[in-house]
Amino acid sequence: MKNRILVVEDDAAIAEAIGLNLMLSEYDYRIIDDGAEAARCLEKDHSFDLALLDVMLPNLDGFALMEHMERYGIPVLYLTAKGDLSSKITGLRLGAEDYIVKPFEMLELLVRIEKILARTGKLNAVLRYHDLTVDVSKRTVQKAGEQVRLQPLEFDLLVKLLRFKNCTLTRERLLNEIWGFDFVGGTRTVDIHVAHLRRKLGPDLNIVAVMKLGYRLED
């Protein structure tokens, strides 16, 4: 079951780019470009796991939309060009999960979305890829029904690649997120673990090395 995300953003170019990325990361999404319309639409359709709200919206602003979101228990992440402290505080006080200031990077948005979904317990615990089934909560990997034994760090790496499928992750980001900031080993460590994953899970696992950047798991 895919996570479903509501995007309320009046700039079409931004909304479409977000939508494209959400789709590629296997989220369902719905884009609305007007605050009042978003509020109206929630009455009929409110099965969203997360809402990405712009603050400056036509007719009804993002802060005012908050109470509608709360009514249906939808966590909110604000996307806004207003970078001043007071509007950040207003947003967070109202009960937003997070606040991201434009301009931002897509990958950062995706990471924050994942963090919020994990925090609110809505993140998919079971990830599937071809004949692989990864259960994040039990930390097990099955390939065509057979259990595959992975080292803890190999497992974390596999989950990260699956979560950001079709998205290039740099070696540095992987190091930071899986090994931690204080890890002293070089980026070669990532290459070695990727090699282990390829050996243990076979050629079906389409991990593409991207020149000078990092790795990307493709469908």
Binding site: D11, A13, I14, A17, I18, L20, N21, L24, A81, K82, K102, P103, F104, E105, M106, L107, N166, C167, T168, L213, R216, E218
Partner: peptide, 21 residues
């Protein structure tokens, strides 16, 4: 503030093309 919207849009769209299939 006015510049942020087009810049965000440029960044998001170009980033998508660079990092995603």
């Amino acid at each position: 503030h006015e510049m942020k919207t087009p810049v965000t849009s440029l960044l998001l769209n170009s980033e998508t093309l660079v990092t995603r299939t």
